[in-house]
Simulated assay, not measured.
Amino acid sequence: MDELAITVIGPDRTGIVADVAEALAGVGANLTDSTMTRLRGHFTMTLICTGPSLSSAEAALGSLRGVVTSVSSVAPEPDKSDGGEPYVVSVHGADRLGIVAAVTRVVAAAGGNITDLSTRLSGTLYVLIAEVDVPAGASDELAEQLAVAAAELGVEVTLRRAESEIL
């Protein structure tokens, strides 16, 4: 069975999610993973689905007006033996260049894997929330390195263990 990665972006409007979901359901696509959000007046989705061929998914989405789509075949996710321990990194502070780069570099250097990341700018306040898998025993060192990065950036950074029910 084909597994597809699909992206859709366009001006936000009522019904965009329903239109995309109906178009894909019409060609037998089962949406397995997705993330959808509004970004400064634009709506964007990233979906993983199984079922349809690449060409039938492209044709179904091609009938939608006012959106840009991309469809690619992807390999199924390999079984992972140890994904690490789930943590949440949150950053709050004045907007400035390089916050995402600095924080994600610290996480990567500690061997952490970012599984979800969102940012939002509200006036001059910048907020970053990331779900990360941290190697067992690496959280204390990661917290220390995040504190160093926070001081250099002039922002507040917290690292807390995530409750699996929340994720």
Rank of each mutant, 00 (worst) to 15 (best):
A5E: 01
T7Q: 04
D12G: 05
A18T: 06
L24Y: 01
L24H: 06
A25T: 07
A25C: 01
A29Q: 00
N30V: 03
T32Q: 04
D33I: 05
R38N: 13
L39C: 03
R40Y: 14
G41K: 06
G41E: 06
H42Q: 13
F43N: 02
M45L: 05
T46K: 03
L47M: 09
T50D: 06
P52Y: 06
S53E: 08
S53H: 03
S55A: 14
S56W: 12
A57F: 01
E58S: 09
A60Q: 01
L61P: 00
G62C: 07
S63A: 14
L64I: 11
L64Y: 04
G66L: 08
V67Y: 06
V68C: 08
V68F: 14
S73M: 11
P76M: 03
D79F: 15
D79H: 15
D79E: 15
K80M: 15
D82W: 15
P86H: 05
S90L: 14
A94Q: 12
D95F: 06
G98P: 11
V103Q: 07
V103M: 08
T104Y: 08
G112I: 01
D116S: 12
S118Y: 09
L121G: 00
S122C: 04
S122E: 14
T124R: 13
L125Y: 06
V127N: 11
V132W: 00
D133R: 12
P135D: 10
L142T: 06
L142F: 07
L142D: 03
A143Y: 10
Q145G: 01
A149E: 09
A150K: 00
L153M: 07
V155H: 02
V157A: 04
L159G: 02
R161T: 13
I166H: 14
I166L: 15
L167P: 12
